[in-house]
Each structure stands twice: as structure tokens, then as C-alpha cells.
């Protein structure tokens, strides 16, 4: 009996796998993905390889040359404390990208699990689980994040959890909706009839079918998390000093906007913008590729 079930299951899975190369081709071929991927790669190189080539400290201040414009020694000038802006941009990118991806992954895993349970089990469990999501979604995430940030004074790990604490909500709602639809599909019913356990069904039948939706949502979550972290730093919270952050650099630059210290305002803002554009482009490319498959 068990062997029989496995055979049926395997043939069902290969039916899905056949479509994968086409989907990937469509994804890579889209101009959006290419531009987004190129921008993201450039930013990754800038943040992670840059400091290896440009070996100037981002943390040690040059107290004799504070707030000076770009010159030969400092390509992007220094801030009010004499920090090298170019080095700070590079190092600031590292924490932004790491935290952004990590919190999106945590949110994706938890949100998928939560949403799948809610959708598959249904009934009162579903009602309660989704009500909790409704309540948490009723308060704009930045207000919750601000509060959590003040309450827990985060290091990088806590920061990841804080950002994930609001990011999983959207994912769980999406997954729940998809799971509800898939639950009533014929292949799930036949798997149930074959006596395959619920957990196995979730993992082998439902998950492969919603993974596309989840990936798209997770991609946008990366952008959101990076923006939220920059926003928190901009409001004077976020990761504690001396870790530089683009949002914190921007809020520092804001104090000098009347002195026309443009090198403190445009570079960090531009970095945030490029991260947002690149990840949004990749997310849109991914979504287009998936939607075409479903059509």
C-alpha cells in the first residue's frame, strides 16, 4: 500500500517538475529581472567586496577633517564626526542586506507554516489564527517596530526577529488563501483517499504548489525589511552604534541639509533607492513568470 502511494505521488511530482525549466527561462529572459539582478549584484559587490579593495575604516573618525566635501583623500567626504562616508556606505550595506534577507527568510518560513496550518486545518483553528493576523495587521508595522526597538534595544539577531515579527503576517494570509484552494483539488483528495498523512500532503503536494507565491512575497519582504530598518535608524533607533546604517547616515545628514552637505544626503538615499528598485524589479519579474505559468 505504501509503495503504491509513493509511485502515484512520484508521478504527480514529475508532472510539476517538467514545467520548471520553462519557468526559469522566462524569469531570466525578462528585462526586469536582468536589470534588477544587475543592480543587486552591483550593490552586493559594493558592500561585500568593496571594503576589501578600499581599506579605510568606517568606524574610526578623522577628528581633524569633519564634514568636508569629496576630495582625493575621501572620495565621498566625511560626516560631522569625521567618518569616511564611502567606507560607511559599504559597511552599512552589509548589515542592511544581511538583516533584510535573514528576516525575510524567517518571516517566510514562519508565515508559510502558520498559513498552511490555518488553511489546511480550517474550522475554528483557522478563525482564531487568522483573527490574530488581522489584529496584528491593524497596527501599521512601523509603530510596532518602533515600540519593539525601544523595548529590546536590538543587536543584529534581535533586529532580524523584530523585523520578521511583522513581516510574516502578509505571507501567512497569502499562503492560507492558496492552501484553501489547493485543499479542494482532486489530487489532494486522492492523496487523502490513498491514506497519505496530512503532514506529508502538506509537504509534498501543497508546498510545491504555493512555493512560487511565497517566493514572490518573500522577495518583496526583503525590500520592505531593508526599508524598515533604514526607517528605524532614521528615527534614531535601529542597530546601536558604531555599526553604520544608511538610514542613520541619512538622519545625520538631515542635520546638515541647510549647509548643503549633499554628500551626506544623496549617497545613502541613493543606496536605499537602488536596493528597493533592484529587489522590486526581481520580485515583479518573478511574479510575471509565475503568473504566465499559471495561465
Amino acid at each position: 500500500m505504501i509503495q503504491e502511494a509513493t509511485v502515484v505521488e512520484a508521478s504527480m511530482l514529475t508532472a510539476h517538475r517538467d514545467e520548471r525549466p520553462k519557468f526559469l527561462k522566462r524569469f531570466w529572459r525578462s528585462g526586469m529581472t536582468k536589470l534588477g539582478g544587475f543592480l543587486l549584484l552591483a550593490l552586493l559587490l559594493f558592500s561585500f567586496v568593496g571594503p576589501l579593495l578600499y581599506r579605510k575604516s568606517a568606524i574610526n573618525p578623522h577628528i581633524l577633517s569633519t564634514d568636508i566635501g569629496p576630495n582625493a583623500q575621501f572620495p565621498l567626504g566625511t560626516d560631522s564626526l569625521g567618518h569616511n562616508v564611502l567606507s560607511q556606505l559599504m559597511v552599512g550595506g552589509q548589515s542592511s542586506i544581511e538583516v533584510g534577507f535573514a528576516s525575510a527568510i524567517v518571516a517566510m518560513l514562519f508565515g508559510t507554516f502558520y498559513g498552511m496550518i490555518s488553511g489546511m486545518v480550517g474550522g475554528w483553528v483557522d478563525t482564531i489564527l487568522m483573527r490574530i493576523v488581522d489584529i496584528l495587521l491593524a497596527i501599521p508595522s512601523i509603530f510596532i517596530l518602533l515600540f519593539l526597538d525601544v523595548a529590546f534595544q536590538p543587536n543584529i539577531l534581535v533586529m532580524i526577529l523584530v523585523l520578521a515579527s511583522t513581516a510574516w503576517l502578509g505571507v501567512s494570509r497569502l499562503v492560507r488563501g492558496e492552501a484553501m484552494t489547493i485543499k479542494n483539488q482532486l489530487y489532494v483528495e486522492s492523496a487523502l483517499a490513498l491514506g497519505i498523512g496530512r503532514f506529508r500532503i502538506m509537504l509534498r503536494y501543497v508546498l510545491p504548489n504555493i512555493i512560487g507565491t511565497v517566493l514572490v512575497a518573500a522577495t518583496f519582504q526583503v525590500a520592505d525589511a531593508i526599508l524598515s530598518m533604514a526607517g528605524l535608524s532614521f528615527l534614531g533607533l535601529g542597530l546601536p552604534p558604531p555599526t553604520p546604517n544608511w538610514g542613520g547616515m541619512l538622519s545625520d545628514g538631515m542635520n546638515y541639509m541647510f549647509q548643503n552637505s549633499w554628500w551626506l544626503i544623496y549617497p545613502p538615499g541613493l543606496c536605499i533607492l537602488i536596493v528597493q528598485v533592484s529587489i522590486n524589479l526581481i520580485g515583479d519579474g518573478l511574479r510575471n513568470a509565475i503568473e504566465t505559468r499559471e495561465r
Partner: peptide, 9 residues
């Protein structure tokens, strides 16, 4: 894609 706070500044 522009952060609101950067736009404001």
C-alpha cells in the same frame, strides 16, 4: 521605491 524620508529631505 523611494523612501518617504529621503523624498522629504
Amino acid at each position: 521605491s523611494m523612501p518617504t524620508f529621503w523624498l522629504g529631505i
